[in-house]
Amino acid sequence: MKNTKRIKKSRKMDKLALHFVPFDRFINLSGDEKTSLILKQTRDNRIIIIESYLDPKEQAVLITNVMSNIDSKYSGVEMISFTRHDFQKENDFMTRLRNILIDFFSGRKAGLTIVGPASLIKKIERDPEMIMLSMK
């Protein structure tokens, strides 16, 4: 009985689709294109993983657009966006300087963003050096 339950659970997890967006592609998108991409993927029940950080204003725009799109089939998203600095607080001076220069010349803070439909993901938390996704 226990085995059957595990198989069913694993089959359910097999259907989980992850859409990866590399840094180079993401930074070339306009603000509207970024939001549209995230909305499209999450509306299609996919988790989108972006190799970039969404700055606070982009996060606010995304939340606003998600709210405008909520209906009986789409209840919103769970998300997390962070930079490498959020996980490397104990760096020495040279490492921090190197990271600042990389961010400056690339024009953007390197990081990661995970956004998934609220119908699939119950909660995403940072605790504080681990990302935890609680699935529904």
């Binding site: 700055d55 606070p56 996060q59 995403i124």
Partner: peptide
Amino acid sequence: KNPLTQVNLTILGNLEA
């Protein structure tokens, strides 16, 4: 509750910006 949620980070980030 765990304070490191995206909502808290988004609010603080926007105020700072």
